[in-house]
Amino acid sequence: MGETRTVDGRNLPAPEPMERVLEALDGLGPEDRLRFLIHREPYPLYDILRRNGFAYQAEPADDGGFAILIRRSR
């Protein structure tokens, strides 16, 4: 079981949240997971994830934002 890192992109101006999450994904191990907190649903990120072999799951968070759980797809 790998580790789970959290990137908090809430209340940062676009596209800083995406800059941070992409930087974190670059170092993501095969078993690691990344939890990405964001104030609006990040549609452009989904495209990048799909195109580059990541699986993700988006869940609405209590604060009206979203928590996106990302891992490398096998």
Binding site: P15, M18, E19, L22, E23, L25, D26, P44, I48
Partner: peptide, 18 residues
């Protein structure tokens, strides 16, 4: 510019930030 380079894969683009 940043997005079209990033879309080719995280970590591949020489640009970290917009």
């Amino acid at each position: 510019v940043w997005f079209h380079l990033q879309a080719r894969g995280p970590g591949k683009s020489p640009l970290k930030s917009m």
